[in-house]
């Protein structure tokens, strides 16, 4: 039952990553046609555009969502690969703890970076 739920979240996170990465590709590479994401004009990586996107609450939420989805999808997938090697029960538990702590730590760090970027961009 637990695996059924985790696997479902894994699939949903994968779909989320595909959607958000698609959005990223559109923003970064279709800027000629969709300039609304780059209000400062010019290339998408120019400072004005980066600052405008970072200061947007929608973009900040998107970054955090992408971070969470990618972390869960990637770490759960890696955990499954490791579990297929049939490790002993103790090692499985250690992998679970390590991945939860590592995942939460990276999520906290990434969230802080996105929020701090948003606040800094707004203060400019």
């Amino acid at each position: 039952m637990r695996d059924q739920k985790l696997w479902t979240v894994h699939i949903l996170a994968g779909a989320g990553v595909a959607f958000l990465l698609g959005l990223h590709m559109i923003i970064m590479h279709l800027d000629r046609y969709l300039g609304i994401f780059n209000p400062a004009g010019g290339k998408p990586i120019e400072w004005g555009n980066v600052a405008a996107r970072s200061g947007s609450a929608w973009f900040t939420a998107g970054y955090i969502l992408l971070l969470g989805a990618a972390l869960f999808h990637g770490l759960y997938g890696l955990r499954n690969i490791l579990f297929e090697l049939s490790p002993p029960a103790g090692l499985k538990k250690a992998i679970n703890v390590l991945f939860w702590l590592g995942g939460l730590g990276l999520f906290a760090l990434g969230t802080w970076a996105a929020v701090a970027g948003c606040l800094t961009a707004r203060a400019l």
């Binding site: 039952m1 695996d3 499954n80």
Partner: peptide, 13 residues
């Protein structure tokens, strides 16, 4: 059946 299928031995592998 979900009690078994939903666990670690299920189709996800």
């Amino acid at each position: 059946r979900k009690q078994v299928l939903g666990g670690g031995r299920g189709p996800w592998r």
